[in-house]
Design a protein around this nucleic acid. Structure first.
Lengths: 121, 121
DNA sequence: TCACAAAATGGAAATGATTATCATTTCCAA
DNA sequence: TTGGAAATGATAATCATTTCCATTTTGTGA
């Protein structure tokens, strides 16, 4: 956890939602921070490894990042406005575990996201 | 629906699972078809528009395509050898539907994949 | 069969995100 | 203060995807 990591966390806290590496870099630059794009990518990578931020993908494949809470959760993402709701995923955990056992897999992780159009859009 | 579209559908039928545009192009080339990469991308795009194939994303953001078949299923992927098992996802369908309803989302789709190490690796 | 316009094609260049390289700077403990 | 490890950032490289544009194929009416 170094200075850059903390800067990124601060911006993510401030902005609240998801942001791409490029956007985060621009925000910091705009605020007068001379941080380099490389460092932004590196910091985000290490934050993802440490499970401090979530990484998911926009529809065009661009990576977007967001602070994650302490609990493991999934996302319900609006394709219209990008608004996101964190949801409970107990059923998924159980499903992933069951399936993995059935086929003899170990060190299992999973991804699960729901996409749709929210009531406002 | 033109000749290229049909070629792509044929390959996707044959291979069964997911494949990226680059992979599909290579497969066709290997089989002696001189199809261009541009045409592969174009055909896939139009098949997605016509809802004949699904587009989703690998973990690194690369687009992968599959025929939207009769049954919707999920994958258990080995991080070691890439071997993939198609699995039943009834629990997930229910979960996605329930969550979407709860938060007033419509036109809902979802992704769910399990990653792990298979017994051989 | 022929001519011709529209559609399809594919190579090459452009684009845009992400990663690798590497020289320089900052940090920190001894 | 100093030596070395970690952090930094500019630049170049990589890789999927798109755009451009010239050429080829196809379908259709004469």
């Amino acid at each position: 956890m170094n200075k850059s990591d903390l800067k990124l966390i601060a911006v993510l806290e401030r902005t609240g939602g998801f942001a791409s590496a490029q956007e985060l870099h621009q925000i910091l630059r705009r605020e007068g921070d001379g941080i380099g794009l490389t460092t932004v990518y590196r910091a985000l990578q290490s934050l993802v490894d440490d499970k401090i931020v979530d990484l998911l993908r926009r529809e065009d494949g661009e990576a977007i990042y967001r602070l994650c809470g302490d609990t493991h959760h999934h996302h319900l993402v609006c394709k219209g406005c990008g608004n996101t709701v964190e949801i409970e995923g107990g059923a998924i955990e159980k499903w992933a575990k069951t399936m993995a056992e059935e086929f003899g897999f170990r060190e299992v992780g999973h991804t699960a996201e729901i996409f749709g159009i929210c009531s406002k859009c």
